[in-house]
Design a binder for these strands. Structure first.
Lengths: 221, 221
DNA sequence: CGGGTCACTCAGCGCATTCTCAGCGCGGTG
DNA sequence: CACCGCGCTGAGAATGCGCTGAGTGACCCG
């Protein structure tokens, strides 16, 4: 929660805590930016009028940095800005001061349940998509279920789609930076991936570059 | 940007320009196709509903023509198509109308960042290119598949293109600094390279400098 | 405790790749 | 013109990379 009026902030904090939320409170825009970027909150409550960096700027900055945590804005009733502005800026909800505490709680719950709006960060390679936020993989609109290891490997390949990556690079990133076992694991997991997302679709997105490593076709094979 | 609603288009254009983007605007699918094929944009903003050729077709056509500029699609909230479709077609991101302007800016920035870490590290000699990151060799736009040894040798030649390099230098760099076998391997592999990337194109990029070594023509032969 | 999933190991095999070798063509030299 | 040797070439042998199927142990769940 970001709120500079100490009295109000304290009251709301206590209320939210009683309602079962875990609350972290900062009092100015600068701290807000830092906290929201570093932590992965369920939801951010953001006042517009703030010292140093105002609420609008904070929101703008957050989105720009790829932080898509749901934001509920607190707006002054008759300020120079109106509610439309809040939505335009990418706020997910807003409340006009003075607001009913119960309404606040209800809306926060709704936001958390909703899980936030769109997630823009989706990796694409042809008809193959991977959504890191949802941990979801699809090929041609069809969901593909992967084990954690398989998923990790695929995510790595997709983040480097088009590039040839060596088995060692893979081991260091997907397994352990200090991995020292048999590099054959990579081959095995490449095979698992091929069985799940190439074979059923008669494609070959994952190419072997003999002597070098593997490459995920940017066009999905 | 491709958008037929003049009012919206104009607003967004101004906004993007203020945000530091250089914007080119067209109003129908036909112009969009032409513009995106001819120019090398950082990113394309594409509405689905368009006169003449709709957004889906435009995207499809672009990809078919090998244009891989990142595309952000604007979808109508409750249309017959859904977001999955956009991804299936190779869109890199999408936004549902009505959208927050700041979100648009943030996503565009993300796309540009993602799509264009640039790859200045591509070795060129005429119509011959070698991309170390992708481990990919092309001649006249056509991919050439090389074995690791062949690739290593070609990379060495291209890094010294124009220079005459002796067989010993090659052996020490491409083979082993302490190589002691038959220097004839180099001749053999030079031959393999010629067979793969000179003969099929009626060129002779790799020249023999009798008694000295080999030289790769900077203009590709 | 039994069934299932997941991570990983292991050994054999097929084949692309690497390298060796011997003969030949041809250019340079006396 | 004849000789020498560098580089070219085709064939074949050796190597080892990557693929695969089977199997084991850890862990979770009911």
């Amino acid at each position: 929660m970001v709120e500079d009026e100490v009295r109000l902030a304290d009251t709301v904090r206590r209320g939210l805590t009683d309602a079962g939320f875990v609350v972290e409170l900062v009092h100015n825009g600068e701290d807000a930016l830092w906290a929201a970027t570093e932590n992965n909150y369920d939801v951010v409550v953001l006042d517009i009028m703030l010292p140093k960096v105002n609420g609008y700027k904070v929101l703008e900055q957050l989105r720009e940095r790829g932080v898509w945590t749901p934001v509920l804005m607190l707006t002054a009733k008759d300020g120079e800005y109106d509610q439309t502005d809040a939505f335009d800026l990418g706020a997910d909800d807003y409340l006009t001061k003075p607001f009913s505490f119960l309404v606040l709680v209800a809306r926060l719950r709704a936001l958390i349940r909703r899980g936030g709006p769109e997630r823009p960060v989706v990796l694409v390679a042809g008809d193959l998509t991977l959504d890191p936020a949802r941990r979801r993989v699809e090929r041609a609109g069809q969901e593909i279920v992967l084990t954690p290891r398989e998923y990790g490997l695929l995510e790595f390949l997709m983040r480097h789609r088009g590039d040839t990556v060596s088995k060692m690079e893979i081991l260091e990133s997907v397994w352990d930076p200090a991995f020292d076992g048999d590099p054959n694991v990579v081959e095995v997991y490449i095979r698992y991936l091929r069985l799940k997302l190439d074979a059923p679709f008669n494609r070959h997105a994952i190419e072997t570059v003999r002597g070098m490593g593997y490459r995920l076709d940017s066009e999905g094979g």
